[in-house]
Design a protein around this nucleic acid. Sequence first.
DNA 1: TTGAAAGCGCTAACAG
DNA 2: CTGTTAGCGCTTTCAA
Lengths: 332, 332
Amino acid sequence: MTDVARAAGVSKTLVSIVFREAPGASAETRARVLAAAAQIGYVPDERARMLRSRKSTDVGVMFSTQQPLHHDLLDGLYTATSGSRHNLILSAVSETRTQDEAILSLLAFRCGAIIALAPRMTDKHLLALTQDVPVVCVSRPAQAPRLDWVTSDDAGGIRQAVRHLVALGHQRITFLSSPTDCGSPERESGFLAAVHAAGVTGTVLAAGQTGPHGARAAAQILDSLEPRPTALIAFNDRCAKGAMDMIVQRGLSVPRDMSIVGFDDSEVAQRDYVQLTTVRQDTAKIARFAAERALQRIAGIYLESQPDGLLVPTQLIVRATTGPPETAGVHT
Amino acid sequence: MTDVARAAGVSKTLVSIVFREAPGASAETRARVLAAAAQIGYVPDERARMLRSRKSTDVGVMFSTQQPLHHDLLDGLYTATSGSRHNLILSAVSETRTQDEAILSLLAFRCGAIIALAPRMTDKHLLALTQDVPVVCVSRPAQAPRLDWVTSDDAGGIRQAVRHLVALGHQRITFLSSPTDCGSPERESGFLAAVHAAGVTGTVLAAGQTGPHGARAAAQILDSLEPRPTALIAFNDRCAKGAMDMIVQRGLSVPRDMSIVGFDDSEVAQRDYVQLTTVRQDTAKIARFAAERALQRIAGIYLESQPDGLLVPTQLIVRATTGPPETAGVHT
DNA sequence: TTGAAAGCGCTAACAG
DNA sequence: CTGTTAGCGCTTTCAA
């Protein structure tokens, strides 16, 4: 910066003013400073800048490398913050990095707010965090005061799936849950409420969020002797996919012998060889809300009138993996 | 920090020493400082720390939200740097954020080195960047001095695919390229060399990296009247998938009417309903090398003896989408 | 419209 | 082993 100031023949203050796009510099000076900076290849040190200005305007984002949905959300967050002066500080959760580590790193960078994608911590833990920095939870509702959240209407989404299946004539439906994941409790209770309302038989089986989890659960269902369900609703697309693999591998056909519904409408679902019927999440809207809230909090705006969270509607995308149940008994 | 020092009854220096895990503090003091910090909820300000220590030990990583392979690489990078004192500063390329913006942001955070995943910039541009900070390119070789790189042996991988297909009896093979992507030139020339060596007919068709790209290319192939190829090798799994979709949609069967090979061995390929034969990239090894190089550069180590880059071997994973060609003529 | 000085939270030399 | 001092690159008063 000193170099730029010298090259442009002005003081450091002027350089600062120009780069902050603050008023107080003539157009002529501005141009000369920018030219000198470009010449030298100067980029303001974001760390020093934040350090001195004391207010960190950066938004920290905790996401998971393994969740396709998070990549769509990241896209949405960048879109929502582009144009603003706010940087996104990314902190990933991976196989070798825990959520706590990710959050700690965000704290160390003194983000002005944190957007946590699918935080698997308790409300209490999150609330404690809120003492230090405003937090917006994505993919899970929260109950604590001053804890913002935004998530898909999980229960509503599952209800759409159940109604679709019931309309096709299904009487026995199983939900493959992923107990430790965000949103699973809501989807599970939504499922139970929906099957109850429709007067059909619904069972819940703990599966998990990955393909192998779905496959294992499907195998379990096929191996059991009881009247087999004719339709499966999975916690997410990957789980749905795994279940489908297993069913086909056992010589059965989808959707003839088993209808399958996923959740997310991730790329896997869309591009698949067998087009997966799924519940689509509106990631753009979720991201927009999360970003908006985070920026509000950073600006110190806390409106009593606005609710803590937002439930974003889902949309059922009917593709090729759902159909009427096979009426002629079971062939294994 | 001052608060912690007061609470622990020591000077700020001691607190600094304790948090840096530097020698010069008694175990007793150390414990007292840590206790006080935990009590207060103190986390050292990473920005101030880097600012003062002048050497930024952080590693900047440019990645793309849309590339499944990058998420595996991120995992690998976190694993490779965990345990070291180096932070990973992530900067994403998304629909609304260009590579230049991503790099600029990394520069603004004064990373000690940058790992660029699949940089689509010219060697010249990258070389200019190297003046400011050491750069390690991933997924593409580079020719410039002091520009480190690591990528899969693209040509070798394609050769494995070609040999596999030729061994099955294929005589006409088409490669679906993605001209603007990293690695495509290498794969294309590797393909041409391999078909030449095998004495079979090989053609190249520009497709792209997404499913729709692959589908469009496949349609083009099916619509042309010339002797149709009996096997396709795609730039990546998504492209392969899209081509497969189109082929099946036209009433043909894979691999009977057309064998298909992908590239990457991404989750799509592995979990797919139709198990995709593909060329696996060793992401863990690539990530390890990239991280190792970056840390070396940060440490100021430049060994003349070591090569600029590394070509990591690939592995052909034979699944269900390749088989002998249908000998009875073409049925449309 | 411009410049000089002070200081953000921390680390790195020193000295005790 | 512990404390004091100076300053990283920037922004922010305040004065010219």
